[in-house]
């Protein structure tokens, strides 16, 4: 249950940020899409919208909210489950509500506001999707949004960050069927997050080479993964000197995408945005470097040998 950000801008009169701090992490989100814009259906802008913030602590985003619900840390899943029951008028014990760190009145008010909305939206951040429960928390919130559609229009959208993550996700999906965590070692794509995700492959030491484009795992990944990157030949394409490029065997400086290299970036709602470069760069684009490496590899003899065109049953 999701929509493009333009829909939020034009229609959403009830906005919930869950487990995120948009005021500091997505500073333009309020003004461009979610809170401030005036539109055909919400002519008074901020005055026509209600914003609820659900988080474990008071952040700078609280000031922008109408209602702040401080959930007990690690109890997001429980809170969502209680809400799913309450919207359907199922019985809930006081103990179950107390566990979430919120009062009955707060939750009743929240449910009443959700149902009274014409168009509601949940934006959920890493405070929900990367804390205890992880994808189960996200799935619960998506289910709550789906079930709210029995009463009014409701959607949910993850607050994604880090440049063009969505673009990588979208392209991997159309080429391989899966968004990330893909292994090609049998000649066709297989998916298993936790086994084939970059961090797991590196921690296990399964690769004998690493090719890193526009990312800095050296700054974010656990120590065993970084140790492995140091051990194997690591090739980095990046416009900047990063933690990863410093330990890499090869660092090819490339033109920064969107500033000196053209292309397409995907916004967090999967809308493609064409990028036109503003400045010239003496460096080649990532695309050009990858293409030239690929051309060189193609000149080598076919290393995979005899194999079937297709497997009817995967192994």
């Amino acid at each position: 249950m999701t929509c493009t950000l333009g829909e939020v801008k034009n229609r959403a009169d009830f906005i919930v940020y869950w487990g995120g701090n948009p005021a500091e992490c997505h500073p333009r989100h309020f003004t461009k899409y979610a809170l401030m814009p005036k539109s055909q259906f919400l002519p008074r802008g901020r005055k026509d919208r209600t914003m609820v913030l659900v988080d474990i602590r008071e952040t700078k985003s609280v000031k922008a909210s109408d209602v702040f619900l401080q959930v007990r840390p690690g109890k997001d899943f429980e809170l969502i489950t209680v809400l799913r029951a309450m919207i359907k008028d199922q019985p809930i014990s006081e103990a179950q509500i107390a566990e979430t760190g919120l009062s009955v009145e707060q939750l009743q008010d929240f449910v009443a506001r959700m149902k009274a909305a014409r168009f509601g939206v949940f934006f959920f951040g890493m405070g929900l999707s990367m804390t205890r429960g992880k994808h189960m928390n996200s799935a619960a919130l998506l289910t709550l949004a789906a079930e709210m559609n029995a009463f009014t229009k409701f959607v949910a959208m993850p607050m994604r960050g880090h440049g063009n993550v969505t673009g990588a996700d979208v392209i991997m999906r159309w080429q391989t069927g899966y968004p990330f965590g893909i292994s090609f070692n049998r000649g066709y794509p297989r998916y298993n997050p936790g086994e084939f995700s970059t961090v797991d492959v590196l921690v296990r030491g399964d690769t004998d080479c690493a090719f890193i484009i526009g990312a800095d795992p050296g700054a974010t990944m656990p120590k065993p993964a970084i140790e492995h990157l140091k051990r194997v030949p690591t090739i980095v394409l990046d416009p900047h000197v990063t933690h990863t490029s410093k330990m890499a065997r090869v660092h090819i400086t490339t033109a920064p995408a969107g500033i000196s290299a053209p292309g397409t970036a995907y916004r967090m709602d999967e809308i493609p945005l064409p990028l036109r470069p503003a400045l010239e760069s003496p460096y080649p684009s990532d695309e050009e470097v990858v293409r030239r490496i690929k051309e060189t590899i193609l000149k080598k003899p076919d290393w995979m040998g005899e194999r079937p065109q297709m497997l009817t049953t995967q192994v």
């Binding site: 090609f184 049998r186 000649g187 066709y188 193609l298 065109q309 297709m310 995967q314």
Partner: peptide
């Protein structure tokens, strides 16, 4: 489902 295997 069926899988297509990469070749040159």
């Amino acid at each position: 489902t069926q899988a297509f295997i990469r070749s040159q």
